[in-house]
Design a binder for these strands. Structure first.
Lengths: 142, 142
DNA sequence: GGTTGACTTAGAGCGCACTCTAAGGGCGTA
DNA sequence: TACGCCCTTAGAGTGCGCTCTAAGTCAACC
């Protein structure tokens, strides 16, 4: 049978366990995967494509329930393309925010490390340039 | 008693619940917070500073167990400054990687959204510029 | 002194995303 | 035919990081 990959082959290509592949299907994150007469899954190229994109969504922090929503829209056909686009645009905005947050906090981490490089101690050389910047950033919000 | 903030005041300033503040202390993410005679926590400015930095570490995805390790080193005094610095540098490298990963996946998301804007359907216009780029990126790794 | 409300503790519960187990089926090779 | 391996399912278990509950204490105001 050359009409698709076994679950073991697919999981290897995708870098997930077969446990996870079954879990995703059961949880509705995938369209149902076709089976052999014996009931074994056979992953077609388009299933693998879908899973590859799904994996990226997960890596970008999209929660399972939103991936499921995306999959349900996908299965409803072409009329839902606008909705799917909106869902992705919304998530894109979140990813951009996440990156910005990380970059701001990275700046704080850089300053803290610089202070450690200067052999700085809490309460010492209060008028230090770094420690003042750090204090301002930390007090900035939350 | 003006020698520190109550847990309610501290939690408000820090944007965490008092449940979380107690949990962090119990889990060893904080040096022990001084108490009144009656046993109530009073957060000093340096405790709040520590918590502010801790919050940033958490936002940067540092797991609880590493924050605990940082806190333990902090409590051991100045001889551990080198180790603390190493711990932070290690985490900085992870954050930089995380940002890079997000930026790469964001590129994929951008292409996918662009395809939706073009009213693209799976299997249509295969020689489309975007869909080819997307395919290459998705097949790139994992 | 009584009431109110915030505080204390230990420990249970929750949501997420897997991850694994148990029990059984099917198939290919010796 | 027997062995071994990969597959199937439902469902239990895990690890993380909170989040909440129960039962009781403390402090301030009326």
């Amino acid at each position: 049978m050359t009409d698709g990959l076994t679950i073991a082959e697919a999981s290897q290509r995708l870098g997930m366990t077969s446990h996870t592949l079954r879990y995703y299907e059961r949880a509705g994150l995938l369209p149902p995967i076709p089976r052999t007469e014996g009931g074994l899954r056979r992953y077609r190229p388009e299933d693998v494509d879908f899973l590859r994109f799904l994996a990226k969504l997960r890596l970008m922090g999209m929660p399972i329930r939103q991936v499921r929503q995306y999959c349900e829209l996908f299965r409803q056909g072409d009329e839902t393309m606008g909705e799917r686009r909106m869902l992705l645009e919304q998530h894109r905005a979140e990813v951009i925010q996440q990156i910005q947050g990380l970059q701001q906090n990275l700046e704080i981490l850089n300053l803290k490390i610089e202070l450690y490089e200067q052999g700085w101690k809490h309460g010492t050389s209060l008028s230090n340039d770094c420690s003042e910047k750090l204090r301002n950033l930390l007090e900035g919000k939350i």
